[in-house]
């Protein structure tokens, strides 16, 4: 029995402590912890676990990445852990824009955006405004006119809570269209989808990838896409911009490390993400599943993060969401 125990412990110990020093040249020499700020089984978690196995392959040398879930407080607990981790390249984490920036802009979080060293962005999913198939609204304009006729009478369902990125988007839209809407937070994507399909709510926001199939089947109608141009996945759906409202919003997932991590390790991780995303096996599954991949290298990702933080700061000044 004793031997079994020792073998078990030693196995774990050995795996964690194969080498003490973190020389970038032979990085990684021990398992990399990838912190996911959401519970196992969520969208971010599944994305992290799938990409992690491909990153292991492309980091080479038997690299191991362990996905560690630190859920809670809308991601804040996990992101704080990433920001405060030792910048040795053995702790990285998934961050979600604009949720993470929103926390920083509110001044609530224990971290600043500067505490992160962006590695690479993986996914960008624009937001959409949808209505049920029997809805009278054919366009954003119809909805705005109805809301103007009876201010506050139109409720928009979101999957988040107050202060979520979708809520912020609605506030932006209200300001740009000069209209009063009602925010109805459902707290999860499943209930809000069900409510819009069942006609329990006039309209709802969700991510484009979540609306694709239902919209193609005619179960829901996408009346506005919050991207700069039309999406290749859903060519018939008009953008907000086309309809005269400058609403551009979406959510992205990317990988970041605590700031101060050696530049060559950043480069290694960045390259691993790039190769993983272009791995034929991964690419094929992602294409079939229509995952909106959007690779940004470290530098571009940093610029993207800065821009979205600046945008949110501007919004916070005119319409604080809390």
């Amino acid at each position: 029995m004793k031997r079994v125990f020792r073998a078990g412990v030693m196995g774990v110990v050995a795996a964690v402590a194969l080498s003490g020093s973190a020389l970038a040249a032979d990085y990684p020499t021990k398992p990399i912890e990838m912190i996911v700020a959401f519970a196992p089984g969520g969208g971010t978690d599944v994305a992290a676990r799938s990409i992690a196995s491909f990153m292991e392959k492309h980091l080479g040398g038997g690299a191991r990445i362990a996905v560690i879930n630190k859920p809670g407080a809308g991601g804040e607990i996990g992101w704080t852990a990433v920001a405060q981790a030792k910048p040795d390249g053995y702790t990285i984490g998934f961050i979600n824009v604009p949720a993470i920036n929103a926390l920083v802009v509110e001044g609530k979080a224990k971290f600043k955006m500067d505490d992160f060293q962006p590695i690479a962005n993986l996914v960008y999913d624009p937001g959409v405004l949808v209505v049920g198939k029997n809805s009278p609204y054919q366009s954003v304009k119809d909805l705005v006119e109805a809301a103007k006729a009876k201010p506050g009478s139109i409720a928009i369902g979101t999957s988040g809570a107050v202060g979520s990125s979708e809520h912020i988007t609605i506030l932006n839209f209200e300001r740009l269209a000069d209209v009063k809407l009602t925010h109805a937070p459902f707290g999860g994507t499943a209930p809000v989808r069900q409510a819009v399909l069942g006609g329990h709510i006039p309209a709802a926001t969700m991510n484009l990838s979540e609306a694709l199939q239902l919209s193609r089947e005619g179960e829901i109608r996408v009346i506005g896409v919050m991207s700069e141009g039309r999406s290749d996945y859903l060519k018939d759906a008009p953008t907000f911009r086309e309809q005269g409202y400058d609403v551009v919003a979406g959510s992205s997932r990317g990988i970041a490390a605590p700031k101060g991590i050696p530049a060559d390790i950043v480069a290694k991780l960045e390259a691993a993400v790039d190769k993983a995303l272009n791995d034929p096996e991964y690419l094929e599954a992602a294409k079939k599943a229509e995952i909106p991949l959007h690779y940004l290298a470290s530098g571009d990702y940093k610029a993207f993060l800065e821009k979205s933080t600046a945008d949110l700061e501007a919004t916070w000044k005119v319409s604080p969401w809390r």
Binding site: V4, F5, A7, G8, V9, V12, E33, A66
Partner: peptide, 28 residues
Amino acid sequence: LGTLAAIVLIFNVVLERPLPPDVLMHLW
């Protein structure tokens, strides 16, 4: 010892759930 071995095996090795950080590892 057997119970702990089983726990380490199931939680840490197979399911990759981290155990609370351990002094044993630092010693090692």
